[in-house]
């Protein structure tokens, strides 16, 4: 199908953007150096971030519909304009996310504008669903390489650093621009919590 060519072109375009420093302090911890309790506390803060509308709105299920939720909206609902990102999760079958969400590492400065980031806008892969999921379900998903993009703990940390280099989605969530509530805490704190959670062996509340 023609849109597959299109997807490939977009991924290349996105990859070509990589530039810049992540600007974060990486305070690596030895595996096992963090207690289960501390790890769970770190997870709780991670959950506050990933379940926040800035993150969860684009981690949705196989209906492939991004959500509009958060304090800016009277009630949660599907993204306006009948948006469906399709199985491609980038809208290639219908209206590409990039039609409105530009790929640019420049800061978001215009209230209520379509947010942009340094990577091509998209829904997270369908197995990464967070929206409407329980805390434990999200935790289980995030530590399961079958459902987290094949990442182990270190790769999880690298994922954040790479995102920061691109000024991509995680980075954006903490600095979404005027008119949108940021995810709680800072990107640095989120990185620190992720390192702690990984060092504690990625504990989940249901363990």
């Amino acid at each position: 199908m023609r849109w597959i060519v299109f997807v490939a072109a977009m991924i290349v375009a996105g990859g070509a953007f990589a530039a810049g420093e992540h600007g974060l302090d990486v305070n690596r911890l030895e595996p096992g150096s963090v207690s289960q309790a501390e790890g769970l506390a770190a997870w709780g803060r991670i959950h506050d971030v990933v379940s926040h509308p800035r993150c969860a709105n684009c981690h949705t299920d196989d209906a492939n519909v991004p959500m509009w939720s958060g304090p800016e909206y009277e009630k949660p609902g599907p993204h306006g304009m009948n948006i469906n990102a399709g199985e491609s999760r980038i809208g290639a079958e219908f209206l590409p996310c990039q039609t409105c969400h530009a790929t640019s590492a420049l800061p978001n400065t215009v209230p209520h504008a379509a947010p942009h980031a340094g990577a091509p806008w998209m829904l997270a892969p369908v197995e990464f669903v967070w929206f409407g999921q329980s805390e434990n379900a999200i935790c289980e998903q995030m530590r399961d390489p079958e459902r987290n993009g094949g990442r182990d703990g270190d790769a999880m940390v690298e994922h954040i650093l790479h995102d920061a280099e691109l000024r991509s989605f995680i980075t954006w969530a903490f600095d979404p621009g005027p008119g949108r509530e940021a995810a709680p805490g800072t990107l640095q704190e989120h990185l620190d919590d992720t390192i702690r959670w990984v060092a504690a062996g990625m504990p989940c509340p249901g363990d």
């Binding site: 590409p96 039609t99 409105c100 530009a102 790929t103 640019s104 420049l106 504008a113 379509a114």
Partner: peptide, 18 residues
Amino acid sequence: TVHLDGLAVRSCQIPAQA
């Protein structure tokens, strides 16, 4: 809406730099 390298985009969202 304009076409940017063949893709329909909202030109109000495209920084000149991009």
